[in-house]
Design a protein around this nucleic acid. Structure first.
Length: 225
DNA sequence: CGTTCGATTTGCT
DNA sequence: GCAAATCGAACGC
């Protein structure tokens, strides 16, 4: 019998086996996919952040902090690291580097590509609200997890083999370095000097990013000067 | 064992 | 612009 399940090309283990800053840039343009209960949702990655490892004071694994939560970051490259923050929001990371060294890339925003209706349903709050625009569906790390139904059940899962969660490499070859904005990470003010490290990247022309850098924001809104 | 606070989002002032 | 929501990790006693 021939399974006619469409072959989905995934990022290989080797693709994840690089430093976080490099992977953060290479993931822009790739496609994050979930297939939950047969329902496929997918989005083009347009914003990422690198969390370097034990020396990075903004990282959960700072000072080799190894707990049940951070354990997946010590796993092989290509492992998913999903955590809960503020008691209600999930964030998704792809573990990279070498096994045993805790480093990862946070995916912060997607351009929705498939399953937009499903995304909108998942993003809708308990009470009725105005329909979400496509640019509101996945423009933040917790928003995209909600839209793609990513939660802590996915942490420590293998992105190169898991049936419901993976990243496809298509689309990222057209990007050039000048298509990306490199700026500081969001929400890590507690990290002292590390809060100023330029470890966030986003697709310059995308309206789907979460927060634009001040200079780029001015550029986008710029009609004067 | 109690307290603090977060790699966020949302709604109200 | 600001604070609430909401709960488990992290940490101090």
């Amino acid at each position: 019998m021939t399974e006619t399940r469409p072959k989905t090309r995934r990022l290989s283990r080797r693709s994840y086996a690089t430093d976080a800053a490099t992977l953060a840039q290479r993931l822009i343009g790739c496609v994050l996919v979930t297939q939950i209960d047969g329902v496929r949702t997918a989005g083009r990655i347009v914003e990422t952040e690198a969390y370097l490892g034990p020396e990075d004071k903004a990282a959960h694994a700072v000072a080799w902090r190894r707990t049940p939560r951070t354990e997946p970051m010590f796993g092989p490259p290509g492992t998913a690291y999903v955590f809960l923050t503020y008691g209600m929001h999930h964030c998704f990371n792809a573990v990279c580097g070498e096994e045993g060294f805790p480093t990862a890339v946070l995916v912060r925003a997607l351009e929705p590509l498939e399953g937009l209706n499903t995304m909108a349903e998942r993003r809708a709050r308990p009470v009725a609200r105005r329909p979400l625009r496509p640019t509101d569906l996945c423009s933040g790390p917790a928003k995209l997890c909600r839209a793609l139904a990513i939660d802590r059940s996915h942490t420590a899962q293998d992105l190169t083999r898991h049936p419901d969660l993976w990243i496809e490499p298509r689309g990222n070859r057209l990007l050039r370095p000048e298509d990306l904005v490199n700026t500081t990470r969001i929400g890590v003010d507690y990290a002292g000097a590390w809060a100023q490290a330029p470890l966030r990247w986003y697709l310059r022309d995308s309206p789907h990013v979460s927060v634009r850098a001040p200079a780029d924001k001015a550029r986008s809104a710029g009609s004067r000067a």
